[in-house]
Amino acid sequence: MTRPSPSRTSPPTLREIEAQLQAAILTGDDTVLAALADGAHASRDTLLGVYRQAYTARLIEVLMSDYPLLRSYVGDVVFRELAHSFIAAHPSRSQNVRWFGTPFPEFLKEQGSAAKHPALAEIAAIERSVSDAFDCIDAPVLGFDDLAAYPPEEWARLTFSLHPSVTFMPAATNAFHIWKALNEQETPPRGVCLPIPEHVVVWRYGATPKVRLMMEEEAMIGREARRGASFGTLCEMLAIYADPDSAPARAAGYLQAWLTNEMLTSAKVVARNRRAHLARRAAPSSSSA
């Protein structure tokens, strides 16, 4: 069967018009101009330009409101350049503009000029996590009283659910200190790579997102707690990581901080027969801790 050749007189379909107008906006393709009539007071080129300019302007504005501190750190000119290249590389695929800028921090990691300053991607990642913590799903907050209900002999087998807003972020640069200075409207330090990475945690306290640094060991047991490690296991990990004698006190201190910070949602006691780590420790191949 031969396909009928498209008749020059038949008007474009809605599907064709939408594809052409989208291409005009995204790539500057002018095909759609043939389907347009001039305006009452302006040419069709000028009027098509309204959509083209509005597209980029709107998305730059979205990025500016998502990343206000990065913007003030690099300045308007640089921010706009970065935003332009991001918009060109990442057309929005989200129905909600709220998530348009989500890949921006990752983009900055790879993007030529920004990649030379790795603090930029990390500042953006902190800002992103703050936005995400802001409207993250709601969850109950575990209180001291809830924990007091468990008898002391069960504490070793307690496991915790972390609040869904809690995000652990290792930082290879001083991004946290830059972010903090900008957030407090102080002069930020120059971006530098750190000899030892820092551990940033972002979470929501009440209705407000919070950001702080954690000691490496606190971040370590925080991640393990999220994976379901029991309080007993967390204590053991701290004992291996540093001074074993003070491990229980350190563990209690971190737990108290998490409770005060509203980072925990619930606790439960795991059944004895599910303490796989003990079985592993008892196995002959395991090293003696």
């Binding site: 474009p12 939408e18 906006i25 959509y51 509005a54 998305l59 979205v62 929005s92």
Partner: peptide, 22 residues
């Protein structure tokens, strides 16, 4: 209006031709 095709969202309120097909 429409906001995009081919999986892309232009986050704008875009016009259509006023045809019987549309």
């Amino acid at each position: 209006c429409w906001t995009g095709v081919h999986g892309v969202n232009l986050h704008d309120l875009l016009p259509i031709p006023y045809t019987r097909e549309a």
